[in-house]
């Protein structure tokens, strides 16, 4: 018993924090592309941040409760429509916690701001664990059932948590190991790139002017991490959370950890600019971002547990 997938839209999958410590075997990290929003959805049903969530991408999708479920949604702006039979009985917006009664259908529709909505259930989705994680690159299909415990929650509409940085702020980056002096970042300056529709959890392709780079024809593959910016030809690719563990293209820049979650909310055609920061700044921002998120999740969790 749990939630049945009626229509997963463009792409939906189950994610958590992913697999850390297995890149040595070639196992990608995976996990929620916007881990911050996944954490917020979890906190709204009093889960720990690492509980498994449903990651729903870009286009509308439909899910049906097989028994009553305590759910919460966070992430992209959009609408959640709850239907009983043909009748829409409630329209909600993330972030929100609510009960989906047995037999009721939920339509998730991300809108203009952001690309992914995260749907958490109290106790987490109980899909199989592999190497300590339920994260999976298998796309959900109509008819799939996500197991979860029965539950209910009062309707909760917290104020949308303020993000650390404005939506259209540049992505902050460090020079990459193939360009430690930052020549590519200097050359692109404030150039605006556009997110290509050929983007996925593995990587975001960026369209824009070419900045040809002298390259080492004998370059060997080297380990990479999500957020790496590689040049494939002259096309920059920002590696996503499901990227492989190594890459053969020049690694010219690296999105800082504090901004990784923002990659998960970039939509096709959206404008992207970059802002170089120092290693010291990147570490400080990472520390602050983690501390702020911990505090936010703790506050949401206390409020959720109290109800």
């Amino acid at each position: 018993m749990g939630l049945q997938v009626i229509d997963p839209g463009l792409c939906a999958s189950v994610q958590d924090r992913g697999r850390i410590g297995h890149a040595r075997y070639g196992v990608p990290r995976g996990g929620a592309f916007d881990a911050r929003s996944a954490g917020i959805a979890n906190a709204l049903v009093a889960n720990m941040p690492e509980a498994a969530v449903l990651e729903h991408t870009l286009t509308a999708g439909v899910y049906e409760a097989r028994h009553a479920l305590a759910l919460a949604a966070a992430g992209a702006s959009g609408t959640l429509t709850i239907r009983q039979g043909q009748t829409a009985i409630r329209i909600l917006e993330p972030p929100v916690a609510f009960t989906l009664e047995a037999g009721s259908r939920l339509t998730l529709a991300p809108r203009l701001a952001g690309a992914r909505i995260y749907l958490a259930v109290r106790g987490g989705w109980q899909t199989p664990l592999v190497l300590g994680s339920r994260a999976s690159e298998d796309r959900l299909e109509p008819g799939d059932l996500l197991p979860a415990a029965q539950g209910s929650t009062a309707l909760k509409r917290p104020r949308p948590p303020r993000t650390q940085v404005p939506f259209d702020h540049p992505l902050r980056v460090l020079p990459g190991p193939d360009d430690p002096a930052g020549a590519w970042l200097q050359a692109i300056g404030a150039t605006a790139f556009h997110v290509s529709p050929q983007s996925s959890r593995m990587g975001l392709r960026l369209e824009g002017p070419a900045f040809p780079l002298m390259r080492d024809p004998a370059r060997l593959s080297s380990p990479v991490a999500p957020g790496a910016i590689q040049l494939a030809g002259d096309t920059p690719i920002v590696l996503g959370v499901a990227c492989g563990t190594m890459g053969g293209y020049p690694h010219v820049a690296q999105v800082i950890s504090a901004d990784l979650h923002r990659l998960g909310q970039l939509r096709p055609a959206q404008t992207v600019t970059f802002e170089p920061v120092s290693l010291h700044e990147a570490r400080t921002l990472d520390r602050e971002t983690r501390a702020n998120l911990r505090e936010l999740l703790a506050r949401l969790m206390v409020a959720s547990s109290a109800s």
Binding site: G21, H22, A23, R24, L220, S222, V224
Partner: peptide, 22 residues
Amino acid sequence: VVDVVAAYRDVAVFADPETVNL
């Protein structure tokens, strides 16, 4: 140190910034 990834002539060392002085 949470992961050590060797590939050709490079080795990536991933650390947990909560517990280690980088």
